[in-house]
Nucleic acid binder design. Sequence first.
DNA 1: ATGAAAGCGCTAACAC
DNA 2: GTGTTAGCGCTTTCAT
Lengths: 344, 344
Amino acid sequence: MSHKKDITIYDIARELRISAATVSRSLKNSPVISVKTRQMVQELAHKKGYRPNTVAHNLRKQKTNTIGMIVPRLDSYFISTVLAGIETVLNPAGYHLIISQSFENSEKEIVNAMTMFNNRVDALIVSLAADTTEISHFEPFMEKGVPVFFFDRVCKQDICQKFVLDNYQAGYEMTKHLIEQQSRKIVHITGNLTKNVYNDRMNGYRQAIEDHGISFNPAYLITNNLSLKAGIEAAEQIILMKPLPDAIFAANDLCASACMAALKEKGVKIPDDIIIGGFNNDPVSRLVEPRLTTVNYPGDTMGKIIASKLIDKLQGKLPADFPVTQIIKSELVVRASTLRKKSA
Amino acid sequence: MSHKKDITIYDIARELRISAATVSRSLKNSPVISVKTRQMVQELAHKKGYRPNTVAHNLRKQKTNTIGMIVPRLDSYFISTVLAGIETVLNPAGYHLIISQSFENSEKEIVNAMTMFNNRVDALIVSLAADTTEISHFEPFMEKGVPVFFFDRVCKQDICQKFVLDNYQAGYEMTKHLIEQQSRKIVHITGNLTKNVYNDRMNGYRQAIEDHGISFNPAYLITNNLSLKAGIEAAEQIILMKPLPDAIFAANDLCASACMAALKEKGVKIPDDIIIGGFNNDPVSRLVEPRLTTVNYPGDTMGKIIASKLIDKLQGKLPADFPVTQIIKSELVVRASTLRKKSA
DNA sequence: ATGAAAGCGCTAACAC
DNA sequence: GTGTTAGCGCTTTCAT
């Protein structure tokens, strides 16, 4: 099977006995070209199945209209909602995304960042891998003036735009809610504490208990990778604690749900014996039993805000005094898993 | 703030008083260049922070090492596992992905396909949008000899490589299992029946009931978008049926779980009154109560197979007689939601 | 072992 | 209103 070659503007120019420049201008409907010529060119281009070569265009324009995106993984409800939000704003503005996963691995994140740079993306949107501690791999972008926006898992340094939730506040409120439901022995299951999201939630937890006269008990802090499996293992750990804790705050819904399911299998009554709260408002939180109290993490909204600010930035419209850190509001969603029966 | 300009091979050539050609060869470690020169070039390139311009490279080579991917949405457990599988094979081979979502919308899929083409991807991997019925938007790729691989949601035509599950078989086995658990009035909740995945599962369902002497009842076929909300609505519909059905087979786990939860809220006992099976082996299936019987849809494996076959194809190593349709095996995962207590 | 030069497809400054 | 020309950064053939 012989394959069609790409049609170029030169093919069209030759056939019409005009110059490539005229073809180029006609295809962009430039008003300097006569309507007649424009029509002629556009018709032939359509007829021959001309497709602009974006690669050549990008090289010439020194601009790709492509935004690079590096995320820890795609199989997260939160990430996919952010992505959806970003695309709904970016695409109509003529940008498209190239997405890559670091799989929570800093080395892969570095490779991905280099690939993005070499592909000359116009900007980068990043949520850091769990084990990323330093961010020199983004320096080439900054040196060149390519915007780098961080979201959710951000770096400590105030060198780029950051978009985060009020994780501290959310952690505080969740914990306060648990305390108000007559809990004193509150386990916190968290992720990698070098990451702001988990560290902030934990600090909120600590502050809340201390504000209510409960001293921090290191045995009540369980650190794992917040997976389904980790939730089950956490349950095994918790069940052995004497006395049994009366509340659990897990830093995501998947882990909270798995932990809850495992505890129930062992005969622990939820919410009678232990009340449980999660984080993210993942669909699973509405399907487990009892329904899981959680923190609504508005990924879609976050994505839209990020994308629109990024467009402002690319168009030089972002005010110079725009705050480095944008905090997006979250809210506590109280469901049955943390509501103790008052009668007890 | 003034921004660093990109370093090009010409900058290095000038500084070293050699030609750009020599720099280019040295950077790829070509053996025709003396070791001394190579070292010199590589050192300076490193020192100056040289980054190859992939855009220029791609234009020159007429090849991008980029694979385009178009999927209905990213917020699906199955899709993200396929993606992960594909990346683990593609990246080490020097390819990277550009991913876009059609949001189940055919028009957006067409736009995405054009963008991919214009960006001159080396190949395309597609799972079709729910409302896509004709696939002429992929013709430019085929005409040009750019491989297009379909997976999961594939087209009817046998014009490109396809990778699918044995949906018919899986639907048959699930239904057979439900029947063997003493069910006769089996509701099937399905998605858009123009899509092979749902249509095949339904045909498996129909064949299975008929093979067991149960005639098809159109009232037992509920078609919706298989979302969480749709599952709740299906439950409302089912609860009104007289007599009450004794089994439900939903075409995905999210919808099955939501339906189950809603039925339980209305006092229906699962699995005593109604047994329920889902599809996908989504994590949620292991967290709901009772645990959901489902079909394991091995996304990761599927992704790896697709990617390795695609690499073969790109390297001209795919045998000419390689079957157009690859069927990947799935398996029934039986859990508590469909196990009737024998004592009853 | 190295260099000169052409060209990938497109755009834009400058000419007429 | 249209054409000429140069150049984006890189690779590669051909020459030396």
